[in-house]
Amino acid sequence: MAGALKGRVIGVAVLLVWGILKLPIETELTAQLQHERLGKYKITASLRQQAGQAGFIAVLGGLRAPVADLLFIRAHIAWQQHVEYGRMKLYFDICTALQPRREMFWDMAAWHMAYNGAAYIEQTEKDKYIRDRQMKEYYKVGEDYLLRAVENCPDSWSLYDRLGSLYREKFHDPCKAAAAFARAAERPNRLDYTRRLAAIYLADCPGHEKEAYDKLLALYKESEKEWVPSLLEKIQILERKLGIPKEERVYIPEKHRLLPD
């Protein structure tokens, strides 16, 4: 019995020593993984939030990703079958909380809310005042998702692209749209049109005409590939607005020329 007691005491002591030794290793490794996940960006969340999520995560064990996927599918079904936006938002909130690095969740959440949700209100709500207010709320929910999305997925150009589109199409705010596209253009692997859209929307942003003109001109000079109708149109409009002398204006192919003012 003395031996058994000795064995247990030594056993617990070994566990204790190992526990203390592993502590810095685990802390360091967690930090490294965190770094790989988020790069230099760091999400700050209060413990309370974390603890709520943690209890949840503990219950899920190693199943964070598939559970998030299942909730996403449920949201999708809720949309296809019942059109329940409240329930959908709940699902989207959880699945984005579980997998904040999954771009598609944010993208779809924002799209469903700002586009489909708002469109649904537009078709079903008769009272104009309520309709307008509720649609604005839906836009706002979509914007919230995308703002959190770009915080969580800082390398994603497509989320900034979606944000820009949302500002442009629903908020009719060219300044914010231009800023979002400009951010998208700075992300890795972005498609070239993001730069163009940043400049084109900036042209509509009061007070930024000169800046927009310079950007458009830079694109214009960069390659003929950039000579798309909308860009050429904006250049001509800005040249007139800014009072650029005719001889300093750029060459515009015949078919894209605006009527003389």
Binding site: G62, R64, A65, Q99
Partner: peptide
């Protein structure tokens, strides 16, 4: 620390 699969997921 052994939950690397959750990262692979994204």
């Amino acid at each position: 620390l052994f939950n690397i699969v959750d990262d692979i997921a994204v």
